[in-house]
């Protein structure tokens, strides 16, 4: 089976007459991690939701292997980690994992401490941090070919951030992953390619100095 490629092109999104996204091109192949950066309110999350299919812009062209995709989640091709909690609260974690986890990664997922310690519980019995960790991992290990991660490193301890980055790198061997977060140094570390959204359009970032040139950061940490 060849590598799948997800392409997003010509997205037009407006809120109350204000143009949010207007000149967008973003692609992602299986086997790579694409980092998406941008200031608050520039439309990063909106772009991910448009690709996933839960936000309808005035125009978009999204394709997988050059075949038009109306909603990314149809057929389970694309999975999305939203910024909010998304697991049903009163179903056992073991049952939730059974449906969503990619069989190729089932052993690896089930060996994680967060699953080992809580698989008999329901999400409502977990703390906020534990729940977020579980939701992030369930999304990364899901069956989809392409994974969209919206702020996976926010409100997460440094040790967990490192663990997420390792998991992302391992899963990216067979999946395409688009990840956005305000912890840009984590994105620079984990991503193979960086794309910046500025003034409603996407810019390829070839070296970290471009982030300064486009005014995303003042200096590198």
């Amino acid at each position: 089976m060849g590598q799948h490629i997800l392409k997003t092109d010509s997205v037009h999104l407006e809120f109350d007459g204000r143009k949010i996204l207007q000149d967008i091109y973003l692609d992602c192949r299986q086997g790579e991690v694409v980092g998406l950066l941008g200031r608050n309110g520039c439309g990063k999350s909106s772009l991910l939701r448009i690709i996933f299919g839960t936000l309808k812009p005035s125009y978009k062209h999204i394709s997988i292997n050059d075949r038009h995709v109306y909603k990314g989640y149809d057929g389970g091709r694309v999975a999305y980690l939203p910024q909010h909690n998304y697991l049903p609260q009163n179903i056992k974690i073991e049952s939730l994992a059974e449906i969503i986890i990619d069989p190729q990664f089932a052993g690896e997922f089930k060996s994680l401490p967060i699953y080992q310690n809580h698989y008999q519980k329901k999400p409502s019995q977990l703390s906020g941090g534990e729940l977020r960790q579980l939701e992030t991992l369930m999304c990364i290990y899901s069956r989809a070919d392409f994974i969209l991660l919206d702020e996976p490193f926010t409100h997460v301890s440094p040790v967990q951030t490192e663990m997420f980055k390792d998991v992302i790198r391992r899963c990216a061997k067979i999946k395409g992953i688009i990840v956005t977060d305000h912890q840009y140094y984590s994105i620079l570390d984990v991503a193979n390619r960086i794309v910046l959204i500025t003034d409603g359009s996407t810019k390829a970032i070839n070296n970290p100095d471009d982030l300064i040139r486009y005014g995303y950061i003042n200096h590198m940490i």
Binding site: F52, G53, T54, Y73, D74, G75, G76, A79, Y80, P82, H84, N85, Y86, L87, P88, Q89, L96, I99, I100, M138, C139, S142, R143, A144
Partner: peptide, 13 residues
């Protein structure tokens, strides 16, 4: 409708 994301991620319409 937050939990819809779980079912969509699992491939359900």
């Amino acid at each position: 409708n937050k939990t819809f994301f779980y079912f969509r991620n699992a491939g359900y319409n």
